[in-house]
Amino acid sequence: MRFGFNFMLGATLTALVILAGILAPWIAPFDPVLDADLMNSELPPDATFWFGTDGQGRDVYSRILYGAQISLTVGIVSQVINSIIGVTLGMTAGYWGGWWDDLVNGLTNVMLAIPSLIFALAVMAVLGPGLPSLLIALGLTNWSWTCRIARSSTLSLKSQGYVQAAQTLGYGDLRIMFTQILPNMMGPILVMATLGMGSAVLSEAALSFLGLGIQPPFPSWGSMLTDARQLIQMAPWVAVFPGLAIFLSVLGFNLLGDGLRDSLDPHMRTRNP
């Protein structure tokens, strides 16, 4: 498999976010919550505080490193939930057809008609703010595209000879779905999940910005932006760095997803001579 420049850039950015999240406790110079010092508030970037300090004198650099943990957790967990729901519904609908297919299709269309942020807001309103409910809300919102892709892949894979062969060999439906169909559609599903991670990070930022996501004083890139609102005139760095972090990580996920799509697409793959 050959990877293009976009894929390498995406992989590098994603790796940086992952490293930042994992290594935060060791490489962050300050504690993101406890090291508040009003004497040091709103300091511009310098040798001690690389990205400056916020209104409560906390180190923005350290908070961004810890914020990567939140963003990654949100991105990965919500996409795992999305993929499980989408693949389960889509694959069974495509394989079994009939009334179940009609039902899943209807549900998918309804989900696609509701703006996902509004739906997530509604779920958050019921579950209350906080990380677990954020994960549930985002995990429940974006499975419809995955579901559609899983369904159409299943429909085309179902007519392949090897799936029919498995049926004649006595395989049960579930065994066929998991051994014959699922492995052959992992490519597009993985691409969808990677692209979805980008939008999940954005949604987390939006929900936290609206005060429904991660609650202060815990650092998330979205809630850091909320805090930065009043300071944007005096201390722009408080807003700029979390914004950059969101931008670069979302860009990274998207480029990675695009690159995966290109390298997993059999038409793009060079044939072995």
Partner: peptide, 12 residues
């Protein structure tokens, strides 16, 4: 049992 027509589509 069955032997299929298209040898390219009949194997996983």
């Amino acid at each position: 049992q069955m032997v299929f027509q298209d040898p390219y589509a009949s194997l996983n």
